[in-house]
Each structure stands twice: as structure tokens, then as C-alpha cells.
Computed example of a mutant assay.
Amino acid sequence: MSIAVFYAPNAKDSSYLSEEESFHAIRVLRLRVGETIHLLDGRGSKFSTNIAALEGKKVAFGPLEVVESEPAPAYSIHLYVAPTKQMERMEWMVEKCGEFGIHGIHFFASKNSERKEIKLQRLEKTAISALKQSKNLYLPEITGLHTFKEIADKEGGEKLFAFISNPPVSVLMKTAAKNKEYHVIVGPEGDFTPEESDILSKNNWKPFSLGKSILRTETAGIAVCLGLHILNAD
């Protein structure tokens, strides 16, 4: 039988699971005192412990033993996305990028954006679920809704943006260098306006292509994440 995994960002400073994780342990999994559980802090560590007590609606756990620890990789991926009208598609993207492993997913509004607000809490829950399912050790940061200018003005790292053109620009795998702090923008389904593309280029964002097919926003986000992992695989 597999050992239940819980998200506990303050595992070293607290001996209790959160209310939501406690509910899952008690009401859904029906765990009992003495059972072994694993905790993920979302910052590179996995711990083994046991359920020490069930105190009302909260689960208390015992001393921690580090069973897995992973240093931050030589590269990191931060994805910037203009959210689609259907939020379920963004949740799916967050889930899949989280399974592959990503450090940040940030949402912004541009002229052709279909959505002007997002529910961060739902997206954060999706990211936590993906963390536990995939057994990754790093939880991505989820932020938004930023303005286009805030993203365009960003400094540092390797800055890339998906660009649809004819003829197409160079593909992502040939544009990005290895072992970088990647900041990658995927625009709205109506694409960036010419003015927005010009602003990105003037702010040293490098355009790249994801191939001849026109991808949905969420598909492009996942393709970026996977492509950068493959680029750095060796």
C-alpha cells in the first residue's frame, strides 16, 4: 500500500497538517494514529513521519525524517500566460506544467485577453494536487493578474516570447540556451497586437516559434515547459 502524501510548507515549524490536509487525512483516507505519512514542503524536501494524534479536525504529526532532498536545478522555468475565457483550461495547464515541474506560472492581461480576473486559490490548489501526484519536490509560484507592462518591463534571466509569424522565427529549442533562468511569455488566443510584440522586442524579449501549428494557449504553455526540460535533460 502506498504511503499518503500531504503538502506541509511549514513542516519544520509546525507539528500539524493544515485544516484542508487534515480533512483529507481523516475524512477521505480515514488514517489513524500511528500510520506513516509523507510530507512535502514544496521547497525541495520530502519527510517521513507518523500521525501522532487526531485532535478534533486537525492531524498532529511526530518527528520528521528527511527521506528525499533535492537541490534547486541549474535552470528554472517561469511561464507568463494571458488567461483564456474558460478557467478550466488554465487549471489543466497548471496541473500538467506542475507534473512536469515548473517554478512559476504568472498570469497577465493584454489587449486581446479574454479574461480580466483569475481565481488564484483554485489554481494554487491545482498546483498542490499536481505536486503530490507527481512526487515533485518544488511547488510552483502562482501569481497574477499582472499588467502587460509589468511583464514586458521585467529584468533578468533569459526572456523569450512565443511569436506567430510568416515565415516563422526559430523554434524554442534553437532559441533558448541551456541552464538559464527562463522567463517565457505565451500570449492570448488572439495573439499579441503588433504594438505589444514590438514592445517585447524593444525590451529584449526574444521571439521563438512552437512550430507551424497554431496551438491553444494552454497547449503552448505545456509545450514550452516540456521543451525546456528536454533541452536541459542531459
Score class of each variant (00 low, 15 high):
E218I: 06
T219R: 06
W92G: 06
E195C: 06
L160Q: 06
E189P: 02
T147S: 15
I128S: 11
I3C: 08
V66K: 06
I230K: 09
I51M: 03
E19V: 07
G98P: 00
F107S: 15
V66W: 06
Y75K: 08
K180R: 14
K174E: 15
A25I: 03
K180F: 01
F100W: 13
E21A: 10
K202M: 09
Y138L: 15
V5I: 14
L131C: 09
F161Q: 12
E88F: 03
H103T: 10
I222W: 02
R43K: 14
F23R: 09
D234R: 07
K149R: 15
E195I: 01
K46F: 00
Y182M: 03
A53R: 02
R122K: 06
E141G: 00
K202I: 07
S113W: 07
L29A: 05
L172V: 03
N166D: 10
G101P: 09
I102C: 01
S209W: 01
F61T: 13
R43Q: 15
K135L: 12
A25V: 05
I118W: 06
L231T: 05
A8P: 10
R89K: 13
K85W: 07
I199K: 04
Y75H: 10
K149G: 05
L226E: 09
R89Q: 07
N112G: 03
